[in-house]
Design a protein around this nucleic acid. Structure first.
Length: 892
RNA sequence: GGGCGGUUAGCUCAGUUGGUAGAGCGCUUCGCUUACACCGAAGAUGUCAGAGGUUCGAGUCCUCUACCGCCCACCA
């Protein structure tokens, strides 16, 4: 290992950063050194993130990449702060989608369905698939640079989590919080299972509203007209309902109607649930296939007719329509109604249709006996945790979304008619007819009559049931393990905002119920990653960015830095190639900065942290001060989960200040004939860079780790190097303002040269300034000469009141007045115009300042520092204006 | 029908205790200065969606409006 490190120290650096070479090398190094595996230190509060387990249904997408990067930023940061840090990785068996994916593959290869194979064989195939893809996912996580503890990796179908699931089922069953009931459920005719409301998407579609008249029994030519979007369900109508306050129907309520086509008698009932304003005010009631109708049916004791086969074709209860698909039946029924004179009219109608999220077909509401979780007793404490502020949300607005969902929560149907998943640990007894639950792998005999003539429920549990236990099932629960005691509750739950209900809420409910504590104190929610056009990435659209491809082309750090800096918490972001290229360039920039510094011969330099030295040159004091400011800012932002902003600040510092200015300034001192002088500047260069690499490490772990080993350092790896401490004793505010003056001067000269299109690289210059700044410029002659492009022989630094030269460009800054006596620059007229423009601009600024200060309320109410600053600004502007005006006068 | 988010330079977006608008890309003009052309220097461009309000002062707080997007919801 140290061999590896030594090698990078000695090697001559390449001209450009090569991510591929570095990424594998360092990940292996970190892993072998076991940096990802925390050492439990009793009494110390650890920082813990349980990774949202990706579905084992294929490769990871960019959304996963963002998840991992955000979590890894937190993890690496806390690890560097010296905390016991655990990031526990895992994978989810993904119930329906897992089953569907494997079904598809088998169908493609063998033209066989899961039923052809049978439960056992099918499950064997699913396991094969899962084992393969779990490895793929692990490989991808490694490519991301995820510093998670592989020794603790978990899978929702592992023996441990399986045991946890049974234990929870059994407990809730015993507490009466899991019950079995016949209710209306969302049936997915595509995947042939029940799904929860959360798995249903409402899709707006153009459809029709059909008006059908139902004859009133025994009254010639009297009808009640209903409006419906689903005429085919009329076969299962067992009533028509109207609002009890609807005067139009007062005298018909209670009478019987004749159901057209079927000729069955059904009552006209009055129910509050009916909106008089809609349609005709009368609604057909199909308790077997509509949620509202089901409720009306419950209230009025209406019979339930199930019309559909599992694949949503009409069953034998549909009479002559039996065997038809529901949409085919719709056409026929409408045609028949029309033909027989029952169809009053057809209106175009835009409405929402419930679709199964998984199979992308309209769901079919139907009545089925299912297992349910009675949710209110679990939801209440989860709600309170948020309301009382124990559970925090980042960004805060999601708290409201979370609480309002819990306030209106419905019972949770948990059975799924699948093979793949946690088999429901409930057994039916053929002898006594009762049902027993167990926490064991199998149950031998009925809990009630001890008969062994029992059979297990064939269904499995909703995948979110096991996901909800994730924060403690991964730590060994129900056993009281050391991990569980130490790492539960976790610190942050980081995930995408679209699974607050599915997952976050359920973890909180189960966590409180079974562990007595919320499973984490902070929920951090990131947004969706979209494509360049802002569209949601998806496989079907083919617009998804494959993170591995992006990594291959730009590097893992580039993808990470891009995703982290182009988003703010909770907001969606767009990913584009130009952004990726930009981040790659940044990695290359710091690579080359390091290369430049080390090429000056820093190999034998002893490590030290950036140090402010009173007698050091201005630039040194400046960059060290700026570095410590950065440390403070970045740490603060990390604390507040503002990773994007933190990353951007480091970028700006490294590129805009360290490289553009400090390295440039350092060049002449690196060439100094005085070895001590060279050492000094090298020390500042390496120490500031080393410190900044630490700050950057969570944002670009690979390149920073690689570069760190080329620099003087302490310890064996950057990943475990201590996070820099902010230190106000290392701040020299004066150096910052002075350096600013120097920068301003250099920029002014560069600007003037560019605008005047000066050919020669070095120009003559006369800089006039007040005493303090004059001294500064004299000390910084070398910097001025080199960075502004001044001929050292033709530089004069004088007092503010020295006589100005006649033939020269005049540049007025707050720091100084600079004269450039440029050859051929004798166009007095042009110079006058230029000065005139500048005077005009300065006057505008002055006016603004004067206006603010003239307002008596400003001085009275604004805080003193703000007023003082405004005064200073006014004075500086006045001075500048005076100088400009003087110059204009002199030219005449 | 409720609720939330967005609307800032041509494009993509920052801008968290309210104090005279920023970055990257793109564009223009220079430049192979011994780290980097995945580079350097200089430059241009904003009624911060609109209207009102609070305030000495509003991109930032409040109200309303418009457009875009999302979430929730049993008008068939």
């Amino acid at each position: 290992m140290t061999e590896l490190a030594d090698k990078s120290e000695k090697q001559e650096m390449d001209k450009a950063y090569n991510p591929q070479a570095s990424e594998k090398k360092w990940y292996t190094f970190w892993e072998e050194k076991k940096y990802f595996t925390p050492t439990i230190r009793p009494g110390e509060k650890p920082f813990t993130i349980i990774m949202p387990p990706p579905n084992v249904t294929g490769a990871l997408h960019v959304g996963h990449a963002l998840t991992m990067y955000v979590e890894d930023v937190m993890i690496r940061w806390h690890r560097m702060r010296g905390e016991v840090t655990l990031w526990l990785p895992g994978a989810d068996h993904a119930g329906i989608s897992g089953e569907t994916v494997v079904e598809k593959v088998i169908w493609q290869n063998e033209r066989k369905t899961k039923n052809d194979l049978g439960r056992e064989e099918f499950l064997r195939r699913v396991w094969e698939w899962m084992d393969e893809y779990r490895d793929t996912i692990s490989e991808q996580l490694k490519a991301f640079g995820a510093s998670c503890d592989w020794s603790r990796k978990a899978f929702t179908m592992d023996a441990g989590p399986q045991r946890a699931v049974r234990k929870v089922f059994k407990s809730l069953f015993d507490e009466g919080l899991i019950y079995r009931a016949e209710r209306i459920v969302n049936w997915c005719p595509g995947s042939l299972t029940v799904i929860s409301d959360l798995e249903v998407n409402m899709v707006e579609e153009d459809g029709f509203l059909w008006y059908i008249r139902y004859p009133v029994k025994g009254e010639e030519n009297r009808f009640v007209t209903v409006a419906t979007t689903r005429p085919e369900t009329m076969l299962g109508d067992t009533a028509v309902a109207v609002n009890p306050n609807d005067a139009r129907f007062k005298d018909v309520v209670g009478k019987m109607l004749i159901l057209p086509l079927v000729n069955r008698e059904i009552p006209l009932v009055a129910d509050e649930g009916v909106e008089s304003e809609f349609g005709t005010g009368a609604v057909k009631v199909t308790p077997g296939h509509d949620p509202l109708d089901f409720e009306i049916g419950q209230r009025h004791n209406l019979p339930i007719i199930n019309l559909m086969n599992p694949n949503a074709s009409i069953n034998q209860n549909g009479g002559i329509y039996a065997g038809l698909d529901r949409f085919e039946a719709r056409k026929r029924i409408v045609a028949d109604l029309e033909q027989q004179g029952f169809l009053v009219k057809t209106e175009n109608y835009r409405h929402t249709v419930p679709y199964s999220e998984r199979a992308n077909v309209p769901i079919e509401p139907l009545v089925k006996e299912q297992w349910w979780v009675k949710i209110a007793p679990l939801a209440q404490p989860a709600l309170e945790a948020a309301q009382e502020g124990r559970l925090k949300f980042v960004p805060e607005r999601f708290k409201k979304i979370y609480t309002s969902w819990l306030e209106n929560i419905h019972d949770w149907p948990i059975s799924r008619q699948l093979y793949w998943g946690h088999r429901i640990p409930a057994y039916f007894c053929n002898n006594c007819g009762k049902v027993s639950a167990t926490a064991e792998e199998t149950l031998e005999k009925c809990d009630y009559c001890a008969s062994n003539d029992i059979w297990q429920d064939p269904d499995v549990l909703d995948t979110w049931f096991s996901s909800g236990l994730w924060p403690f099932s991964t730590l060994g629960w129900p056993d009281q393990t050391e991990d569980l005691a130490y790492f539960y509750p976790g610190s942050v739950m980081e995930t995408s905002y679209d699974i607050i209900f599915f997952w976050v809420a359920r973890m909180v409910m189960f966590g409180i119920h079974f562990m007595g504590e919320i499973p984490f104190d902070t929920v951090y929610l990131h947004g969706l990653v979209r494509d360049e056009k802002g569209e949601k990435m998806s496989k079907s659209k083919g617009n998804g960015v494959d993170p591995l491809e992006a990594i291959a082309e730009f590097g893992s750090d580039a993808l990470r830095f891009t995703l982290l800096t182009s988003s703010t918490p909770g907001n969606d972001s767009k990913l584009s190639r130009t952004k990726l290229a930009d981040s790659r360039n940044f990695a290359n920039k710091i690579w080359n900065a390091t290369r430049f510094i080390t090429m000056s011969g820093t190999a034998d330099l002893a490590y030290q942290s950036p140090k402010l030295e009173a007698d050091a040159p201005l630039a040194d004091r400046w960059i060290v001060s700026r570095y410590y400011k950065l440390v403070e800012e970045v740490s603060r932002l990390q604390e507040n989960f503002q990773f994007g902003e933190a990353g951007r600040l480091i970028y700006d510092f490294l590129w805009g200040e360290f490289c553009d200015w400090y390295i440039e300034i350092s060049k002449s001192r690196l060439n100094s004939s005085d070895p001590a002088e060279k050492r000094k500047v090298q020390t500042t260069l390496t120490s500031v860079l080393e410190g900044t690499l630490r700050l950057l490490h969570p944002f670009m772990p690979f390149v920073t780790e690689e570069l760190w080993h080329y620099l003087p350092h302490e310890g064996e790896a950057l990943i475990i190097a201590p996070w820099p401490k902010a230190d106000s004793s290392q701040l020299d505010e004066a150096a910052i303002t002075q350096f600013e003056a120097l920068r301003e001067t250099i920029r002014a000269i560069r600007n003037a040269k560019a605008e005047a299109k000066v050919e020669s690289k070095k120009v003559a210059a006369i800089i006039l300034a007040n005493l303090e700044l004059k001294n500064l410029f004299e000390q910084e002659i070398d910097t001025l000469v080199r960075l502004a492009g001044i001929d050292a022989q033709k530089l004069t630094i004088g007092n503010a009141d020295d006589a100005p030269p006649a033939q020269a460009l005049a540049l007025v800054t707050d720091a100084a007045t600079i004269y450039l006596p440029l050859a051929g620059m004798v166009d007095v007229e042009a110079e006058r115009t230029r000065l005139g423009k500048e005077i005009e601009e300065t006057r505008r600024e002055l006016e603004k300042s004067e206006k603010t200060l003239a307002n008596p309320n400003f001085a009275e109410r604004a805080p003193a520092p703000v007023v003082a600053k405004e005064r200073e600004r006014l004075e500086a502007t006045q001075e500048r204006l005076a100088k400009l005006e003087q110059r204009l006068k002199d030219l005449a």
